[in-house]
Design a protein around this nucleic acid. Sequence first.
DNA 1: CGAGGAGCGA
DNA 2: ACGTCGCTCCTCGA
Length: 461
Amino acid sequence: MKYTDYAIISGLSARRGKRDFVSFADQELEIVIEDTPENRVNALGQIHAKNNIEDSYILTLESELISVLSRMEIQWVGFDKTKLSDIGVRIRWDIKKLEQEIYEIVGENININSPKQLQTLFFETLGIKPLRKNKTGYSVDVDVLEEIAKTHDIARLILEYRGLMKLSGTYVDGLMKAIDSRDGRIHTTYDSLGAATGRMSSNDPNLQNIPTGNGYAREIKECFIPSTWNILLVADYSQVEIRVLAFLSKDESLISAFQNGEDIHMRTAKFLFGENTEISSHMRRIAKSVNFGVIYGITGFGLAKTLDCNTWEAQKYVDAFYEKYPGVRIYYDELLENARKNGYVETYFGRRRYIPGVNDANKTMRSIAEREAMNMPVQGTAADMIKIAMIELDTKIREKQLVGKMILQVHDELVFDIPLSEKEIFEKMVRETMEWVLKNTWEFLPIIVDISTGRNWAEAK
DNA sequence: CGAGGAGCGA
DNA sequence: ACGTCGCTCCTCGA
């Protein structure tokens, strides 16, 4: 049955999507086409033509990536069904126990998965003051429950319950359904143009959001295993987005920090709290949030929420960041100026995203658009880099007639299923290729790839 | 079946 | 109003 979902296109296997049209950036084509990778890239080409983009490297890149992705999709990933099944039994047991505990405290069998019933419990029965509203009522999300948990233990239990339900539903049951009955492997579908920034997306099942934590989460990741006699090799770009920001902005402090091999979060922490200050783990955590936040176009309010501090304090950190890395501020100013003038932003490799909202009359809409504009070139350039590396690696693997295969991509990470005998050659080849994509700039901005291996995905990470 | 809320990843 | 990009599960009501 599963194969009825597939269409053979140009001798390659690719799955048909549900959509019957192709869109790119914020411009929908006025044509209805069969949703295939080839047609999507074709549509991308039409968008380029319509906007007078010539000699687009992105078009070449996306064309070449189609067959690479199809080979990854065909390969599939090994999976330990027995182990997942055992995890499922234990999680369900824990859920049952938590359920009983919660019912006991509440005094009745409420549906813990219903935000509506939780609202009634907290804000009416228990008389707790609501923290935040959403479209349908008062929010009972993790931030709110963390706050309530300070005074009511029940909130802690509900958070635990939610975490286990997520693992049980999305990962245990979800992955169990995705295991192929014939060979026990799992197959995902990639959408190369899945995100507006140029990132890919993965679905059915999504293998780009497998839990990374400890406990059950780690056990689930341990279920992803190599083929018989093989090992998994995981290669990931180290702090690639901040490095890309350094590269695009040419900020001197940011670049020199990477040149000197400094811990970038520590570098920012020193900037925020003083060169001679002993940086605590708390301070480093703040600096890390600021570093990431800047890439997302953060505001004082948003950072305050993340750090659980007041807006004034958070804004102070954001201001300090831009003061210490002035090149970043200039870069963003010029970027937004260009976005307002041209209506789009683009990556280093020329991938575009149209963002008409930067000139919207509505301040809120404009702010959203500005954050999108600020983030896209960073996230998109990183996406371009790994896509280029994937094409190059796919070619090399076949040229060298290696047995190992590239099987997964998780935004800044590639996973390979390889024989132990090919470990050294893969390590060297993968590192060199992934770092090579910005080779012409390596002189002033080191790109670092971390590689590890193991008998399962958790061990290799 | 779809919207909304929630939570998992980079 | 309030940090980017995704996908999937659950509830609830049409």
